[in-house]
Every structure is written in C-alpha cells, then in structure tokens.
Design a protein around this nucleic acid. Structure first.
Lengths: 250, 250
DNA sequence: TCTAATTTGTACGTATGTATG
DNA sequence: ACATACATACGTACAAATTAG
C-alpha cells in the first residue's frame, strides 16, 4: 500500500477488481480473508473489511460469515444484472426454454457493423441469428455480432444447450453495457420467425457490450409486442434484508 | 438505542428514514452530525458514520465534508432515479419542453382503476391526460390516475409549468415503483394526439408508484416508436468517483 | 489572510458476537 | 469444543473541506 492520494481501501478494491478482470481471480475462487489482507497488505482489519464489504455490495464478491469471500459467478448473474439472460427469465416463470439456430457463422464484417463496433471492414466477425422459444412459442430473436478474438471458439459452441449470452459472459464479466429499447414494425423475416402478423408491433432492444473499453458484441433483440414485456421494479435499499435476498441471484 | 436483534447502525438509519417519510425531516434540511448522534443516541462515531454514510449512498442524504449532512431534494431527482422526468430528459438534450393539458379533473374511480389501485369504486380520483412536446413535436402522452388524498391540491396545479411527475415527487419521495414496457399499436385517440400514422407502433410504459405500501399513481405513458427510445447504460461501480459524480443529480 | 471550530473522510486498534465447518 | 471468518461496535486519531470570525 503506497499511493497517497487514493484511499487505501480503494487501492485494495482496485487491486482485487483488476485480478478478477485479468483472470488471476476466477469466478467462485476464494479471495484472501480480512485477516490475511491485514498481514499481506499491511492495512488494518477495518480497512480490509471496508474493501471486501463494498466489493460484496457492488456484486464482485460473495461473502459468508464463517466461510469466506469468493469471486461472484458472473455466469449466473453478473453485477450488470439488468442485462437478463432469456433462458433464466423463462425458467423463472416456470416455463421451458429452447431455441432454434438460423445462422452461426464467421463472416466478413458488414459495413454498418464495422462502423458501430469500430472493427476494420476487411476483418471477420462471428454472427449468430437464433430464435428463443418459451413453451414452443417464439419470444425473442437474437441477431448478434461477436468480436472473434474475444470468443475464438464461438463456432464450436452448442447454442441449443447454452445461450450465447450465458456463454459470452462466462468468458469474462461485462465491463459496460448499453441497451436501447424502441417500438417498431419488423421486417418480414423477423415477423415470420416470430410467427406474428405482418404489421404487428415489436419491442426492439439494441444492446452493446464492452469488455476493457472494447465493444465485444452488438446485437438486436426482437420481441413480439404482445408476448413480451420489460419489467422494472425499483425500491430503495432500506435494510440489509435486501442485500441478503440479493445473494439468491449470485 | 435499545433493540438487540437489529444492528444499531440500522436502527439509526430506520429512524432517520422514518423522519424523512413522516415529514419531520424535510428536503434540504440538516440532519444531526455524527458527533451529535454520538451524544444524543449513545453510539460510537463509527456507528453514526456508517448510518449516515449508507444513507448517503442510498440517496436519502447528501453529505459534504466540512458542511454537514442534508436530506436529499427528492424533487430534483429521487433515489429511484431510473424513473425519469420527461422535462429533464428533454432539457438534457438541449431542447425545449412544453405540454398541453387535455384533461385535469376529479372523477369517479373507473372499475379497472379501482381494481388495480385497490380503491373503493364509489370513491373519487384525480385523472390527468396531457401531451408532452419536445421542440413542439409530441413525444409522450401521459394518462395518469392519482390518489386524491395523496395530492389534495392536484386540481389547482399548473401543469404547464411543472410536470405531474415533478409535482408528485415533491410531495413525498417514492417508496416503490414498477415500470412495464411494451410495444403496441395505439388507439386512434392516442395516435391523433401523438400526430402519428394510424398503424404506427408505440412504446407503452405502464407505471405504478407507491408511498408507504399504498399505490399513489397508476399511469400509461405512450411514446411514438420512431421518436423515442429508452436508453439504459450500465457499468459497475469501480471507484468512488462514481458516487461523487452522482451528487450532481441530487 | 489567517485562525479556529465544525464536519466529514479515512485509518488503526481492539473487542465481542455470530455463522460455519 | 475449537478455529476461522465475517458482522458489528467502541474508542481514538489525523487529514481534508468548509465556514465563521
């Protein structure tokens, strides 16, 4: 612990976050206990406690009294938990999720994608187009481009058994994400795949995700307007009950 | 400080939150300093610090070193800051917001609203229907019901100069909110007011808000699909810079 | 401009309680 | 019963920011 301007607890946090992002600390792996940090880092127990406590609140770690502190399993639910995995959502409603792969290929970067993702246009990129079903009813079309260096084994994945979102967030937790929601009348290809009338409205979610300041995926997610709703529930954190409940999602 | 099961810092927090909700502590008002709490509550400074620190992080208070701790001004931006005020959004984009009031009245509770809001159907309720414009282009229709006991002076408000959202959250901060986003083709009344083609898609946001476990408002917000987007940007809290920046919104 | 007082921010040391294995 | 680890709590100290005089 050296730097003077940055508080020690923050330096500790940054150190651990860095190791998580670098892969030195992997999901579910144990991180040093408070007392170990006291010895190895030369800080007080309260300082170590604050660092680990805040990392827990921010979703990087899970802590259990009497057990220890562990890196969160971002595959289940990342700290960016607003970004939902469609399969989990369906399962949560007690229904059966499955999917149909329309395309899964390595292609030349389309002009538009090249601009959006800032990738050279004579590079190549993974593209996937698939339909998600809830109890055999189409509920989402996923039309997504994936940086090929981020997920080199993308083509070999079986996306019938694991969703692309789940696979991708297993490689590395997201650092940033952006979602834009709009209402549209989709093109014929989309309405056919969703098995809806030609002029029916759809929710279109355009999502960008980043890892280390680099855009990793860009995708469009189409939902039938009458079969899907984005639900948001907000309440202030009033008691530590909330934090404890939250752990169920980790 | 008495109770045994609940931690003292939590009891302190609950006490202050209660006073904010009861109106004993009003927005912008000063709350006791850490040292005052040490004396009056018989807790240690660290415990008082933890309570006030967490209330700050949760948005109830604003704290400044050398100055003190103050109740947040929920009128500007509540801790449920995901619930945006349309006028602020428009202003943020550098455009001019204005609105047109179609209805502003006290009516018998419609059957459907009675069920949703759990209000006796021979009671009365406020109803407002207005169109929000961004640079004179319709951007949102607000169709909202408001519990008349919560906002007794609702009819006397001039909603051309202050939005209903802003007025309502000035009465009391929200305790809970729910938003459901869907894509629809609106009825003629709505498409006329939004000045869009008959079969154009719209984003429909259905919003419920609660204060003290009681539903205070229920409303539908219609946006032209091609003129409005819900944008969400997510990134993990990596440093305390984030918290400091957040204060700008208070 | 300087000083003192107040308030928050950070940090250390210590102690006790609770949960877990 | 015991050791380990986190949770809470008290006491103390100094630094940084701000305000009042």
């Amino acid at each position: 612990m050296q730097n003077k301007q940055i508080p020690r607890y923050q330096q500790l946090k940054d150190l651990i976050i860095e190791q998580i992002y670098d892969g030195a600390l992997k999901p579910l792996q144990r991180v040093p206990s408070e007392n170990q940090l006291v010895k190895s880092m030369g800080v007080s127990r309260m300082t170590a406690n604050r660092a680990l406590k805040e990392l827990n609140e921010e979703g990087y770690l899970n802590r259990r009294a009497g057990v220890g502190s562990f890196v969160s399993d971002f595959r289940v639910n990342s700290h960016l938990f607003e970004i939902k995995n469609i399969a989990d959502e369906v399962a949560f409603r007690g229904n059966k999720h499955n999917s149909r792969i329309i395309k899964q290929s390595l292609i030349d970067v389309p002009r538009k994608i090249s601009r959006i993702m800032n990738i050279d246009s004579n590079e190549q990129i993974f593209h996937i187009l698939l339909v998600h079903y809830e109890d055999s009813i189409p509920i989402q079309i996923e039309d997504r481009y994936i940086n090929r260096f981020f997920a080199p084994n993308f083509l070999e994945q079986d996306f019938l058994s694991i969703t692309p979102s789940s696979y991708l967030s297993g490689i590395s937790p997201l650092h940033q994400a952006e979602q834009i929601v709009s209402a549209i009348i989709p093109k014929n290809l989309i309405s056919n795949l969703l098995e809806i009338e030609k002029e029916s409205p759809c929710l279109l979610i355009t999502r960008k995700t980043w890892v280390k300041k680099e855009m990793i995926t860009y995708g469009k997610f189409y939902h039938p307007g009458d079969r899907y709703e984005l639900v948001g529930h907000y309440e202030p954190v009033k008691s530590n009950k909330f934090q404890k409940n939250n752990k169920k999602f980790m």
